[in-house]
Design a binder for these strands. Structure first.
Lengths: 301, 301
DNA sequence: TTCAGCCATAAAAACTGTCTATCATTTTTA
DNA sequence: TAAAAATGATAGACAGTTTTTATGGCTGAA
Protein backbone atom coordinates (compact mmCIF):
# COMPACT_ATOMS: atom_id res chain seq x y z
CA UNK A 1 0.00 0.00 0.00
CA UNK A 2 1.01 3.48 -0.78
CA UNK A 3 -0.18 6.99 -0.09
CA UNK A 4 -0.45 7.47 -3.83
CA UNK A 5 -2.77 4.48 -4.08
CA UNK A 6 -4.95 6.09 -1.47
CA UNK A 7 -5.04 9.25 -3.58
CA UNK A 8 -6.16 7.15 -6.50
CA UNK A 9 -9.03 5.43 -4.76
CA UNK A 10 -10.23 8.67 -3.20
CA UNK A 11 -10.18 10.30 -6.62
CA UNK A 12 -12.24 7.49 -8.12
CA UNK A 13 -14.67 7.69 -5.23
CA UNK A 14 -14.98 11.42 -5.83
CA UNK A 15 -15.33 11.35 -9.60
CA UNK A 16 -17.02 7.98 -10.01
CA UNK A 17 -15.07 7.83 -13.24
CA UNK A 18 -11.63 6.34 -13.81
CA UNK A 19 -10.59 8.65 -16.62
CA UNK A 20 -11.47 11.88 -14.86
CA UNK A 21 -10.03 10.54 -11.60
CA UNK A 22 -6.79 9.83 -13.45
CA UNK A 23 -6.75 13.36 -14.81
CA UNK A 24 -7.25 14.79 -11.37
CA UNK A 25 -4.26 12.76 -10.18
CA UNK A 26 -2.22 13.81 -13.21
CA UNK A 27 -1.63 10.25 -14.35
CA UNK A 28 -2.89 8.22 -17.24
CA UNK A 29 -6.02 6.15 -16.91
CA UNK A 30 -4.22 2.79 -17.22
CA UNK A 31 -1.92 3.78 -14.38
CA UNK A 32 -4.84 4.46 -12.13
CA UNK A 33 -6.70 1.33 -13.20
CA UNK A 34 -3.64 -0.81 -12.69
CA UNK A 35 -2.75 0.53 -9.30
CA UNK A 36 -6.28 0.26 -8.01
CA UNK A 37 -6.55 -3.26 -9.34
CA UNK A 38 -3.33 -4.14 -7.54
CA UNK A 39 -4.48 -2.55 -4.33
CA UNK A 40 -7.75 -4.45 -4.50
CA UNK A 41 -5.80 -7.65 -4.98
CA UNK A 42 -3.53 -6.87 -2.03
CA UNK A 43 -6.47 -6.09 0.22
CA UNK A 44 -8.45 -9.00 -1.15
CA UNK A 45 -11.43 -6.72 -1.47
CA UNK A 46 -13.33 -5.09 -4.33
CA UNK A 47 -13.49 -1.36 -3.78
CA UNK A 48 -15.46 -0.38 -6.86
CA UNK A 49 -18.16 -2.07 -8.86
CA UNK A 50 -17.30 -1.10 -12.42
CA UNK A 51 -19.92 -0.88 -15.08
CA UNK A 52 -20.34 1.17 -18.22
CA UNK A 53 -23.07 3.20 -16.62
CA UNK A 54 -20.90 4.41 -13.84
CA UNK A 55 -18.79 3.43 -10.87
CA UNK A 56 -20.41 2.24 -7.69
CA UNK A 57 -18.38 2.25 -4.48
CA UNK A 58 -18.91 -0.99 -2.57
CA UNK A 59 -19.83 -0.93 1.10
CA UNK A 60 -16.38 -2.06 2.14
CA UNK A 61 -15.01 0.45 -0.36
CA UNK A 62 -16.81 3.26 1.44
CA UNK A 63 -15.33 2.14 4.72
CA UNK A 64 -11.82 1.86 3.36
CA UNK A 65 -11.95 5.13 1.46
CA UNK A 66 -13.04 7.02 4.53
CA UNK A 67 -10.02 5.65 6.38
CA UNK A 68 -7.87 6.43 3.36
CA UNK A 69 -8.97 10.04 3.62
CA UNK A 70 -7.79 10.09 7.21
CA UNK A 71 -4.39 8.82 6.18
CA UNK A 72 -4.15 11.34 3.36
CA UNK A 73 -5.17 14.11 5.70
CA UNK A 74 -2.43 13.08 8.13
CA UNK A 75 0.13 13.10 5.33
CA UNK A 76 -1.08 16.51 4.30
CA UNK A 77 -0.74 17.70 7.86
CA UNK A 78 2.85 16.50 7.93
CA UNK A 79 3.59 18.61 4.89
CA UNK A 80 1.97 21.72 6.25
CA UNK A 81 3.56 21.33 9.67
CA UNK A 82 6.90 20.96 7.93
CA UNK A 83 6.20 23.94 5.70
CA UNK A 84 5.30 26.21 8.56
CA UNK A 85 8.42 25.05 10.40
CA UNK A 86 10.55 26.12 7.47
CA UNK A 87 10.77 29.62 8.88
CA UNK A 88 13.95 29.76 10.94
CA UNK A 89 12.34 32.57 12.93
CA UNK A 90 9.57 30.32 14.18
CA UNK A 91 9.29 27.55 16.72
CA UNK A 92 10.45 27.01 20.25
CA UNK A 93 13.94 27.78 21.37
CA UNK A 94 15.28 27.08 24.84
CA UNK A 95 17.89 29.59 25.83
CA UNK A 96 20.17 29.34 28.82
CA UNK A 97 22.04 32.26 30.39
CA UNK A 98 24.47 32.48 33.24
CA UNK A 99 23.36 34.43 36.33
CA UNK A 100 25.86 37.28 35.79
CA UNK A 101 24.37 37.94 32.36
CA UNK A 102 20.70 36.96 32.42
CA UNK A 103 19.19 39.84 34.41
CA UNK A 104 21.10 42.49 32.46
CA UNK A 105 21.03 41.06 28.96
CA UNK A 106 17.48 39.72 28.67
CA UNK A 107 15.80 43.14 29.03
CA UNK A 108 18.01 44.44 26.22
CA UNK A 109 16.52 42.21 23.57
CA UNK A 110 13.21 40.71 24.72
CA UNK A 111 10.99 43.37 23.24
CA UNK A 112 12.94 43.37 20.00
CA UNK A 113 12.64 39.60 19.93
CA UNK A 114 8.88 39.84 20.25
CA UNK A 115 8.52 42.23 17.37
CA UNK A 116 11.19 40.86 15.06
CA UNK A 117 10.44 37.15 15.58
CA UNK A 118 6.85 36.95 16.79
CA UNK A 119 6.54 33.27 15.86
CA UNK A 120 9.60 32.32 17.90
CA UNK A 121 8.88 31.40 21.47
CA UNK A 122 11.94 31.44 23.72
CA UNK A 123 12.12 29.59 27.03
CA UNK A 124 14.71 31.07 29.37
CA UNK A 125 16.78 29.22 31.91
CA UNK A 126 19.28 30.80 34.29
CA UNK A 127 21.98 28.54 35.64
CA UNK A 128 25.72 28.28 36.09
CA UNK A 129 27.98 27.46 33.18
CA UNK A 130 28.53 23.80 34.01
CA UNK A 131 24.90 22.98 34.22
CA UNK A 132 24.06 24.95 31.08
CA UNK A 133 26.76 23.08 29.19
CA UNK A 134 25.39 19.81 30.41
CA UNK A 135 21.88 20.81 29.39
CA UNK A 136 23.16 21.78 25.96
CA UNK A 137 24.80 18.41 25.52
CA UNK A 138 21.78 16.34 26.42
CA UNK A 139 19.43 18.45 24.38
CA UNK A 140 17.51 20.07 27.21
CA UNK A 141 18.76 23.37 25.96
CA UNK A 142 19.18 24.59 22.39
CA UNK A 143 21.45 27.60 22.97
CA UNK A 144 23.19 29.30 25.85
CA UNK A 145 24.80 32.63 26.50
CA UNK A 146 28.06 31.80 28.24
CA UNK A 147 31.21 33.65 29.18
CA UNK A 148 33.44 30.70 28.34
CA UNK A 149 34.20 29.16 24.97
CA UNK A 150 32.80 25.68 24.37
CA UNK A 151 35.05 22.90 25.57
CA UNK A 152 33.18 19.95 24.12
CA UNK A 153 33.89 19.12 20.50
CA UNK A 154 30.22 18.74 19.81
CA UNK A 155 29.55 22.35 20.80
CA UNK A 156 30.29 25.49 18.89
CA UNK A 157 29.66 29.17 19.51
CA UNK A 158 29.14 32.56 18.00
CA UNK A 159 31.11 35.37 19.65
CA UNK A 160 28.54 37.85 20.85
CA UNK A 161 30.54 40.65 22.47
CA UNK A 162 33.34 41.29 24.86
CA UNK A 163 32.39 42.76 28.17
CA UNK A 164 34.81 44.99 30.16
CA UNK A 165 35.03 44.69 33.91
CA UNK A 166 34.32 47.62 36.16
CA UNK A 167 35.60 48.17 39.62
CA UNK A 168 32.87 48.96 42.12
CA UNK A 169 33.65 50.61 45.43
CA UNK A 170 31.77 52.49 48.14
CA UNK A 171 31.53 56.24 48.21
CA UNK A 172 34.37 57.62 50.28
CA UNK A 173 36.72 54.81 49.32
CA UNK A 174 40.17 56.06 48.44
CA UNK A 175 39.67 54.89 44.87
CA UNK A 176 37.21 57.70 44.49
CA UNK A 177 40.07 60.13 44.27
CA UNK A 178 41.48 58.33 41.22
CA UNK A 179 40.59 59.30 37.68
CA UNK A 180 40.48 55.67 36.65
CA UNK A 181 41.32 52.34 38.17
CA UNK A 182 43.58 49.37 37.76
CA UNK A 183 43.80 46.22 39.81
CA UNK A 184 47.18 47.42 40.99
CA UNK A 185 45.38 50.06 43.02
CA UNK A 186 43.24 47.55 44.84
CA UNK A 187 44.18 46.18 48.23
CA UNK A 188 44.60 42.46 48.18
CA UNK A 189 42.07 41.45 50.76
CA UNK A 190 39.56 44.09 49.79
CA UNK A 191 38.04 42.18 46.85
CA UNK A 192 34.69 40.48 47.28
CA UNK A 193 33.79 37.56 45.02
CA UNK A 194 30.90 35.33 44.05
CA UNK A 195 30.60 31.77 45.31
CA UNK A 196 32.28 29.00 43.40
CA UNK A 197 30.55 27.73 40.35
CA UNK A 198 30.05 31.18 38.94
CA UNK A 199 32.40 31.63 36.07
CA UNK A 200 32.58 35.31 36.77
CA UNK A 201 34.30 34.45 40.04
CA UNK A 202 37.09 32.76 38.12
CA UNK A 203 37.25 35.56 35.59
CA UNK A 204 37.56 38.14 38.34
CA UNK A 205 40.17 36.10 40.14
CA UNK A 206 42.21 35.70 36.99
CA UNK A 207 43.01 39.38 36.82
CA UNK A 208 43.88 39.63 40.49
CA UNK A 209 47.47 39.34 41.56
CA UNK A 210 48.36 35.80 42.68
CA UNK A 211 48.65 36.84 46.30
CA UNK A 212 45.02 37.88 46.39
CA UNK A 213 43.77 34.63 45.15
CA UNK A 214 43.92 32.73 48.37
CA UNK A 215 42.15 35.36 50.46
CA UNK A 216 38.69 36.33 51.43
CA UNK A 217 37.41 32.80 51.60
CA UNK A 218 34.81 33.86 54.10
CA UNK A 219 32.85 36.43 52.13
CA UNK A 220 31.29 34.97 49.01
CA UNK A 221 28.09 36.29 47.51
CA UNK A 222 25.64 34.07 45.72
CA UNK A 223 24.64 36.74 43.24
CA UNK A 224 25.93 39.91 41.73
CA UNK A 225 23.18 41.90 43.37
CA UNK A 226 24.23 40.61 46.77
CA UNK A 227 27.81 41.42 45.97
CA UNK A 228 26.91 44.95 45.03
CA UNK A 229 24.96 45.41 48.23
CA UNK A 230 27.93 44.15 50.19
CA UNK A 231 30.10 46.75 48.52
CA UNK A 232 27.52 49.44 49.20
CA UNK A 233 27.60 48.54 52.87
CA UNK A 234 31.36 49.05 52.94
CA UNK A 235 32.49 45.40 53.06
CA UNK A 236 35.00 45.92 50.29
CA UNK A 237 35.25 46.43 46.55
CA UNK A 238 34.36 44.16 43.70
CA UNK A 239 34.43 43.67 39.99
CA UNK A 240 31.25 43.74 37.94
CA UNK A 241 30.77 43.07 34.26
CA UNK A 242 29.87 46.10 32.18
CA UNK A 243 26.28 45.15 31.52
CA UNK A 244 25.59 45.02 35.25
CA UNK A 245 26.50 48.73 35.34
CA UNK A 246 23.50 49.64 33.28
CA UNK A 247 21.31 49.95 36.33
CA UNK A 248 21.00 53.47 37.69
CA UNK A 249 21.92 52.43 41.19
CA UNK A 250 25.42 53.74 41.66
CA UNK A 251 24.84 57.26 43.04
CA UNK A 252 21.78 56.53 45.14
CA UNK A 253 23.30 53.55 46.85
CA UNK A 254 26.52 55.28 47.67
CA UNK A 255 28.46 53.34 45.10
CA UNK A 256 31.14 54.54 42.72
CA UNK A 257 32.81 52.81 39.81
CA UNK A 258 35.69 52.98 37.38
CA UNK A 259 36.14 51.02 34.22
CA UNK A 260 39.29 48.99 34.66
CA UNK A 261 42.26 50.00 32.57
CA UNK A 262 44.03 46.65 32.96
CA UNK A 263 44.65 44.71 29.85
CA UNK A 264 42.45 41.61 29.81
CA UNK A 265 39.97 43.08 32.27
CA UNK A 266 37.08 41.85 30.20
CA UNK A 267 35.40 38.66 29.23
CA UNK A 268 34.20 37.26 25.95
CA UNK A 269 30.54 36.30 25.76
CA UNK A 270 29.48 33.45 23.50
CA UNK A 271 26.25 32.14 22.14
CA UNK A 272 26.90 28.42 22.38
CA UNK A 273 24.98 25.60 20.71
CA UNK A 274 25.46 22.06 19.49
CA UNK A 275 27.33 21.79 16.21
CA UNK A 276 24.59 19.43 14.98
CA UNK A 277 21.74 21.65 16.09
CA UNK A 278 19.67 21.92 12.95
CA UNK A 279 18.20 25.37 13.38
CA UNK A 280 21.36 27.37 12.88
CA UNK A 281 19.29 30.05 11.24
CA UNK A 282 17.39 30.64 14.45
CA UNK A 283 20.64 30.80 16.41
CA UNK A 284 22.18 33.25 13.98
CA UNK A 285 19.10 35.42 14.05
CA UNK A 286 19.13 35.42 17.83
CA UNK A 287 22.83 36.34 17.91
CA UNK A 288 22.30 39.30 15.62
CA UNK A 289 19.28 40.40 17.58
CA UNK A 290 21.20 40.29 20.85
CA UNK A 291 24.13 42.19 19.37
CA UNK A 292 21.85 44.87 17.96
CA UNK A 293 20.42 45.53 21.39
CA UNK A 294 23.76 45.99 23.16
CA UNK A 295 24.87 49.31 24.65
CA UNK A 296 28.16 50.93 23.76
CA UNK A 297 29.70 49.83 27.04
CA UNK A 298 30.47 46.46 25.44
CA UNK A 299 32.30 45.73 22.24
CA UNK A 300 30.73 43.64 19.50
CA UNK A 301 33.38 41.75 17.53
CA UNK B 1 6.33 10.95 0.82
CA UNK B 2 5.53 7.36 1.38
CA UNK B 3 4.02 5.18 4.04
CA UNK B 4 7.31 3.29 4.17
CA UNK B 5 9.18 6.49 4.87
CA UNK B 6 6.85 7.09 7.78
CA UNK B 7 7.69 3.61 9.05
CA UNK B 8 11.35 4.53 8.86
CA UNK B 9 11.13 7.74 10.81
CA UNK B 10 8.95 6.14 13.44
CA UNK B 11 11.47 3.34 13.80
CA UNK B 12 14.34 5.78 14.23
CA UNK B 13 12.32 7.73 16.77
CA UNK B 14 11.68 4.51 18.64
CA UNK B 15 15.20 3.10 18.56
CA UNK B 16 17.18 6.33 18.51
CA UNK B 17 19.63 4.40 16.40
CA UNK B 18 19.72 4.13 12.61
CA UNK B 19 21.20 0.65 12.46
CA UNK B 20 18.73 -0.94 14.84
CA UNK B 21 15.86 0.99 13.29
CA UNK B 22 16.91 -0.39 9.90
CA UNK B 23 16.92 -3.90 11.33
CA UNK B 24 13.46 -3.45 12.73
CA UNK B 25 12.29 -2.38 9.28
CA UNK B 26 14.14 -5.27 7.64
CA UNK B 27 16.19 -3.01 5.43
CA UNK B 28 19.84 -2.07 5.37
CA UNK B 29 21.09 0.94 7.26
CA UNK B 30 22.05 2.88 4.11
CA UNK B 31 18.55 2.41 2.76
CA UNK B 32 17.04 3.85 5.87
CA UNK B 33 19.53 6.70 6.07
CA UNK B 34 18.99 7.56 2.44
CA UNK B 35 15.22 7.53 2.57
CA UNK B 36 15.12 9.63 5.70
CA UNK B 37 17.57 12.06 4.24
CA UNK B 38 15.38 12.36 1.18
CA UNK B 39 12.26 12.85 3.22
CA UNK B 40 13.94 15.55 5.26
CA UNK B 41 14.95 17.27 2.05
CA UNK B 42 11.42 17.06 0.69
CA UNK B 43 9.92 18.44 3.85
CA UNK B 44 12.69 20.99 4.19
CA UNK B 45 13.01 20.08 7.83
CA UNK B 46 15.53 18.21 9.97
CA UNK B 47 13.80 15.41 11.81
CA UNK B 48 16.77 14.02 13.69
CA UNK B 49 19.88 15.56 15.15
CA UNK B 50 22.48 12.91 14.42
CA UNK B 51 25.54 12.49 16.57
CA UNK B 52 27.72 9.58 17.46
CA UNK B 53 26.41 9.62 20.98
CA UNK B 54 22.86 9.03 19.93
CA UNK B 55 19.96 10.38 17.96
CA UNK B 56 17.95 13.31 19.18
CA UNK B 57 14.51 13.91 17.70
CA UNK B 58 14.02 17.59 16.94
CA UNK B 59 10.94 19.42 18.15
CA UNK B 60 9.47 19.53 14.67
CA UNK B 61 10.50 15.90 14.33
CA UNK B 62 8.41 14.98 17.35
CA UNK B 63 5.43 16.78 15.85
CA UNK B 64 5.82 15.14 12.48
CA UNK B 65 6.42 11.67 13.86
CA UNK B 66 3.31 11.81 15.96
CA UNK B 67 1.30 12.64 12.84
CA UNK B 68 3.17 9.93 10.97
CA UNK B 69 1.98 7.45 13.56
CA UNK B 70 -1.60 8.51 12.87
CA UNK B 71 -1.13 7.91 9.17
CA UNK B 72 0.45 4.52 9.80
CA UNK B 73 -2.37 3.60 12.12
CA UNK B 74 -4.93 4.55 9.47
CA UNK B 75 -3.12 2.42 6.91
CA UNK B 76 -3.11 -0.45 9.34
CA UNK B 77 -6.81 0.02 9.88
CA UNK B 78 -7.43 -0.21 6.16
CA UNK B 79 -5.67 -3.56 6.10
CA UNK B 80 -7.59 -4.98 9.02
CA UNK B 81 -10.93 -3.70 7.76
CA UNK B 82 -10.17 -5.32 4.43
CA UNK B 83 -9.07 -8.53 6.11
CA UNK B 84 -12.21 -8.82 8.17
CA UNK B 85 -14.28 -8.13 5.07
CA UNK B 86 -12.64 -11.06 3.29
CA UNK B 87 -15.24 -13.39 4.72
CA UNK B 88 -17.97 -13.71 2.10
CA UNK B 89 -20.35 -14.65 4.90
CA UNK B 90 -19.97 -11.28 6.59
CA UNK B 91 -21.19 -7.79 5.90
CA UNK B 92 -24.46 -6.21 4.96
CA UNK B 93 -26.64 -7.57 2.23
CA UNK B 94 -29.86 -5.96 1.07
CA UNK B 95 -32.33 -8.55 -0.15
CA UNK B 96 -35.54 -7.84 -2.03
CA UNK B 97 -38.45 -10.26 -2.38
CA UNK B 98 -41.72 -10.06 -4.21
CA UNK B 99 -44.91 -10.01 -2.10
CA UNK B 100 -46.04 -13.47 -3.23
CA UNK B 101 -42.82 -14.98 -1.93
CA UNK B 102 -41.61 -12.88 1.01
CA UNK B 103 -44.03 -13.93 3.76
CA UNK B 104 -43.71 -17.62 2.96
CA UNK B 105 -40.02 -17.90 2.09
CA UNK B 106 -38.38 -15.69 4.71
CA UNK B 107 -39.46 -17.81 7.68
CA UNK B 108 -37.97 -20.85 5.96
CA UNK B 109 -34.39 -19.61 6.13
CA UNK B 110 -34.07 -16.74 8.62
CA UNK B 111 -33.11 -18.85 11.60
CA UNK B 112 -30.68 -20.90 9.52
CA UNK B 113 -29.20 -17.65 8.23
CA UNK B 114 -28.61 -16.41 11.76
CA UNK B 115 -26.78 -19.52 12.83
CA UNK B 116 -24.88 -20.25 9.61
CA UNK B 117 -23.85 -16.68 8.78
CA UNK B 118 -23.95 -14.77 12.05
CA UNK B 119 -21.74 -12.00 10.69
CA UNK B 120 -24.01 -11.36 7.75
CA UNK B 121 -26.74 -8.84 8.34
CA UNK B 122 -29.56 -8.94 5.79
CA UNK B 123 -31.93 -6.06 5.17
CA UNK B 124 -35.23 -7.17 3.66
CA UNK B 125 -37.42 -5.27 1.27
CA UNK B 126 -40.74 -6.41 -0.09
CA UNK B 127 -41.85 -4.89 -3.37
CA UNK B 128 -43.11 -5.74 -6.82
CA UNK B 129 -40.77 -7.06 -9.48
CA UNK B 130 -40.36 -3.84 -11.43
CA UNK B 131 -39.33 -1.80 -8.45
CA UNK B 132 -37.00 -4.50 -7.18
CA UNK B 133 -35.30 -4.67 -10.57
CA UNK B 134 -34.90 -0.93 -10.58
CA UNK B 135 -33.44 -1.01 -7.07
CA UNK B 136 -31.02 -3.73 -8.15
CA UNK B 137 -29.85 -1.66 -11.08
CA UNK B 138 -29.16 1.50 -9.14
CA UNK B 139 -27.45 -0.33 -6.31
CA UNK B 140 -30.08 0.18 -3.65
CA UNK B 141 -30.46 -3.56 -3.52
CA UNK B 142 -27.80 -6.26 -3.72
CA UNK B 143 -29.96 -9.30 -4.46
CA UNK B 144 -33.60 -10.09 -5.05
CA UNK B 145 -35.78 -13.16 -5.06
CA UNK B 146 -37.88 -12.84 -8.19
CA UNK B 147 -40.17 -15.05 -10.19
CA UNK B 148 -38.95 -13.69 -13.52
CA UNK B 149 -35.57 -14.11 -15.15
CA UNK B 150 -33.44 -10.94 -15.37
CA UNK B 151 -34.13 -8.87 -18.46
CA UNK B 152 -31.29 -6.38 -18.14
CA UNK B 153 -27.94 -7.48 -19.47
CA UNK B 154 -26.23 -6.21 -16.36
CA UNK B 155 -28.22 -8.57 -14.17
CA UNK B 156 -27.83 -12.28 -13.72
CA UNK B 157 -29.52 -14.87 -11.55
CA UNK B 158 -29.22 -18.19 -9.80
CA UNK B 159 -32.18 -20.53 -10.28
CA UNK B 160 -33.48 -21.24 -6.81
CA UNK B 161 -36.41 -23.56 -7.30
CA UNK B 162 -39.53 -24.05 -9.36
CA UNK B 163 -42.77 -23.56 -7.59
CA UNK B 164 -45.94 -25.42 -8.66
CA UNK B 165 -49.27 -23.66 -8.61
CA UNK B 166 -52.14 -24.93 -6.54
CA UNK B 167 -55.75 -24.38 -7.15
CA UNK B 168 -57.62 -23.07 -4.14
CA UNK B 169 -61.37 -23.35 -3.83
CA UNK B 170 -63.98 -23.15 -1.08
CA UNK B 171 -65.28 -26.18 0.70
CA UNK B 172 -68.34 -27.47 -1.10
CA UNK B 173 -67.07 -26.31 -4.46
CA UNK B 174 -67.55 -28.89 -7.17
CA UNK B 175 -63.81 -29.23 -7.55
CA UNK B 176 -63.81 -30.92 -4.18
CA UNK B 177 -65.17 -34.04 -5.79
CA UNK B 178 -62.18 -34.32 -8.10
CA UNK B 179 -59.08 -36.29 -7.22
CA UNK B 180 -56.90 -33.62 -8.75
CA UNK B 181 -57.35 -30.48 -10.75
CA UNK B 182 -56.54 -28.92 -14.07
CA UNK B 183 -57.33 -25.47 -15.36
CA UNK B 184 -59.66 -27.11 -17.82
CA UNK B 185 -61.94 -27.86 -14.88
CA UNK B 186 -62.17 -24.28 -13.85
CA UNK B 187 -64.98 -22.00 -14.96
CA UNK B 188 -63.70 -19.02 -16.87
CA UNK B 189 -65.07 -16.24 -14.78
CA UNK B 190 -64.51 -18.01 -11.49
CA UNK B 191 -60.82 -17.12 -11.18
CA UNK B 192 -59.76 -14.36 -8.83
CA UNK B 193 -56.48 -12.56 -9.44
CA UNK B 194 -54.08 -10.09 -7.84
CA UNK B 195 -53.92 -6.47 -8.92
CA UNK B 196 -51.67 -5.51 -11.77
CA UNK B 197 -48.02 -5.13 -11.01
CA UNK B 198 -47.83 -8.47 -9.27
CA UNK B 199 -45.99 -10.89 -11.49
CA UNK B 200 -47.97 -13.72 -10.04
CA UNK B 201 -51.06 -12.20 -11.66
CA UNK B 202 -49.42 -12.54 -15.06
CA UNK B 203 -48.19 -16.02 -14.29
CA UNK B 204 -51.63 -17.16 -13.23
CA UNK B 205 -53.17 -15.55 -16.28
CA UNK B 206 -50.72 -17.25 -18.58
CA UNK B 207 -52.05 -20.69 -17.78
CA UNK B 208 -55.65 -19.64 -18.11
CA UNK B 209 -57.40 -20.17 -21.38
CA UNK B 210 -57.37 -17.03 -23.54
CA UNK B 211 -61.06 -16.48 -23.03
CA UNK B 212 -60.60 -16.08 -19.31
CA UNK B 213 -58.04 -13.39 -19.67
CA UNK B 214 -60.31 -10.49 -20.27
CA UNK B 215 -62.66 -11.23 -17.39
CA UNK B 216 -63.00 -10.45 -13.76
CA UNK B 217 -61.64 -6.98 -14.08
CA UNK B 218 -63.62 -5.95 -11.06
CA UNK B 219 -62.24 -8.29 -8.41
CA UNK B 220 -58.55 -7.86 -7.86
CA UNK B 221 -56.86 -8.50 -4.58
CA UNK B 222 -53.83 -6.55 -3.43
CA UNK B 223 -52.29 -9.50 -1.65
CA UNK B 224 -52.37 -13.26 -1.64
CA UNK B 225 -53.85 -13.27 1.85
CA UNK B 226 -56.74 -11.14 0.67
CA UNK B 227 -57.19 -13.37 -2.32
CA UNK B 228 -57.38 -16.42 -0.09
CA UNK B 229 -59.93 -14.79 2.14
CA UNK B 230 -62.00 -13.94 -0.90
CA UNK B 231 -61.94 -17.58 -1.93
CA UNK B 232 -62.84 -18.67 1.57
CA UNK B 233 -65.86 -16.41 1.47
CA UNK B 234 -67.01 -18.07 -1.71
CA UNK B 235 -66.18 -15.35 -4.24
CA UNK B 236 -64.46 -17.79 -6.55
CA UNK B 237 -61.34 -19.88 -6.92
CA UNK B 238 -57.75 -18.86 -7.33
CA UNK B 239 -54.26 -20.04 -7.95
CA UNK B 240 -51.63 -19.85 -5.23
CA UNK B 241 -47.95 -20.68 -5.41
CA UNK B 242 -46.92 -23.81 -3.54
CA UNK B 243 -45.08 -22.05 -0.72
CA UNK B 244 -48.23 -20.15 0.20
CA UNK B 245 -49.82 -23.51 0.92
CA UNK B 246 -47.53 -24.10 3.84
CA UNK B 247 -49.82 -22.32 6.24
CA UNK B 248 -52.20 -24.56 8.13
CA UNK B 249 -55.21 -22.54 7.11
CA UNK B 250 -56.96 -24.70 4.55
CA UNK B 251 -59.24 -26.91 6.70
CA UNK B 252 -60.13 -24.38 9.35
CA UNK B 253 -61.04 -21.66 6.91
CA UNK B 254 -63.21 -23.88 4.79
CA UNK B 255 -60.71 -24.00 1.97
CA UNK B 256 -59.62 -26.90 -0.16
CA UNK B 257 -56.86 -27.25 -2.67
CA UNK B 258 -55.43 -29.41 -5.45
CA UNK B 259 -52.03 -29.25 -6.98
CA UNK B 260 -52.53 -28.41 -10.64
CA UNK B 261 -51.75 -31.17 -13.11
CA UNK B 262 -51.40 -28.79 -16.05
CA UNK B 263 -48.07 -28.66 -17.71
CA UNK B 264 -46.39 -25.33 -17.02
CA UNK B 265 -48.49 -24.67 -13.94
CA UNK B 266 -45.50 -23.55 -12.02
CA UNK B 267 -43.05 -20.68 -11.91
CA UNK B 268 -39.30 -20.51 -11.71
CA UNK B 269 -37.87 -18.52 -8.80
CA UNK B 270 -34.56 -16.72 -9.24
CA UNK B 271 -32.05 -15.08 -6.99
CA UNK B 272 -31.12 -12.09 -9.10
CA UNK B 273 -28.11 -9.78 -8.69
CA UNK B 274 -25.90 -7.50 -10.72
CA UNK B 275 -23.33 -9.32 -12.84
CA UNK B 276 -20.69 -6.95 -11.46
CA UNK B 277 -21.72 -7.34 -7.86
CA UNK B 278 -18.45 -8.23 -6.18
CA UNK B 279 -19.70 -10.43 -3.36
CA UNK B 280 -20.77 -13.38 -5.44
CA UNK B 281 -19.71 -15.61 -2.57
CA UNK B 282 -22.32 -14.08 -0.32
CA UNK B 283 -24.99 -14.49 -3.00
CA UNK B 284 -24.06 -18.12 -3.61
CA UNK B 285 -24.11 -18.84 0.09
CA UNK B 286 -27.51 -17.24 0.41
CA UNK B 287 -28.85 -19.26 -2.52
CA UNK B 288 -27.70 -22.53 -1.03
CA UNK B 289 -29.09 -21.59 2.33
CA UNK B 290 -32.48 -20.76 0.86
CA UNK B 291 -32.56 -23.98 -1.13
CA UNK B 292 -31.66 -26.05 1.91
CA UNK B 293 -34.62 -24.67 3.79
CA UNK B 294 -37.22 -25.43 1.11
CA UNK B 295 -39.99 -27.95 1.63
CA UNK B 296 -40.61 -30.83 -0.76
CA UNK B 297 -43.54 -29.04 -2.31
CA UNK B 298 -41.13 -27.12 -4.55
CA UNK B 299 -38.44 -28.50 -6.81
CA UNK B 300 -34.85 -27.40 -6.52
CA UNK B 301 -33.09 -27.56 -9.86
C1' DT C 1 -25.35 -1.30 -36.96
C1' DT C 2 -22.12 1.91 -36.10
C1' DC C 3 -20.07 5.07 -33.09
C1' DA C 4 -18.45 6.94 -28.94
C1' DG C 5 -17.31 6.23 -24.22
C1' DC C 6 -15.14 3.66 -20.75
C1' DC C 7 -12.23 0.45 -18.41
C1' DA C 8 -8.77 -3.40 -18.99
C1' DT C 9 -4.50 -5.24 -20.91
C1' DA C 10 0.30 -5.38 -22.85
C1' DA C 11 4.95 -4.03 -23.65
C1' DA C 12 8.49 -0.61 -23.31
C1' DA C 13 10.55 3.10 -20.73
C1' DA C 14 11.48 5.75 -16.65
C1' DC C 15 11.92 5.91 -12.01
C1' DT C 16 12.67 4.49 -7.26
C1' DG C 17 14.19 1.87 -3.67
C1' DT C 18 17.48 -1.45 -2.09
C1' DC C 19 21.80 -3.67 -1.56
C1' DT C 20 26.93 -4.17 -1.02
C1' DA C 21 31.05 -1.97 -0.34
C1' DT C 22 33.34 1.74 1.52
C1' DC C 23 34.29 6.18 3.89
C1' DA C 24 34.64 9.63 7.63
C1' DT C 25 33.99 10.64 12.14
C1' DT C 26 33.52 9.67 16.93
C1' DT C 27 33.83 6.90 20.97
C1' DT C 28 35.79 3.23 23.46
C1' DT C 29 39.47 0.32 24.74
C1' DA C 30 44.10 -1.27 25.37
C1' DT D 1 47.92 7.98 23.11
C1' DA D 2 47.04 4.82 19.51
C1' DA D 3 44.27 1.07 17.79
C1' DA D 4 39.72 -0.81 17.43
C1' DA D 5 34.84 -0.58 17.32
C1' DA D 6 30.71 1.79 16.32
C1' DT D 7 27.90 4.87 13.80
C1' DG D 8 25.93 7.30 10.13
C1' DA D 9 26.89 8.99 5.20
C1' DT D 10 28.03 8.11 0.34
C1' DA D 11 28.54 5.72 -4.26
C1' DG D 12 27.40 2.60 -7.83
C1' DA D 13 25.05 -1.51 -9.45
C1' DC D 14 20.80 -3.88 -9.63
C1' DA D 15 15.94 -5.11 -9.16
C1' DG D 16 11.34 -4.02 -8.75
C1' DT D 17 7.65 -0.86 -9.53
C1' DT D 18 5.24 2.71 -11.61
C1' DT D 19 4.08 5.06 -15.61
C1' DT D 20 3.22 5.76 -20.43
C1' DT D 21 1.59 4.77 -25.11
C1' DA D 22 -0.90 1.83 -27.87
C1' DT D 23 -4.55 -1.25 -28.17
C1' DG D 24 -8.54 -4.26 -27.12
C1' DG D 25 -13.23 -5.43 -25.62
C1' DC D 26 -17.47 -4.33 -23.93
C1' DT D 27 -21.64 -1.41 -23.41
C1' DG D 28 -25.03 1.97 -24.37
C1' DA D 29 -26.68 5.43 -27.58
C1' DA D 30 -27.73 7.44 -32.18
Amino acid sequence: MNLRDLDYICAVADHKHFGRAADSCHVSQPTLSGQIKKLEAQLGVTLFERSHKGIRVTDIGEDIISIAREAREAAQRIKSVAASAQDPLAGNLSLGLIPTIAPYLIPLFVSQLQSAMPKMSVAYREDITDRLNEALLNGELDVAVLATPPEEDSLTAIELYSEPFWLLFPEGHELGTFKNASMKDVKEDDVLLLTEGHCFRDQALSICRPAQKARRQSLRATSLETLINLVASGQGVTLVPALAMRGGWSPEMGLMSHELTDKGAERQIYLTYRKRFPRVGAVQALATLIQDGLPESVRVA
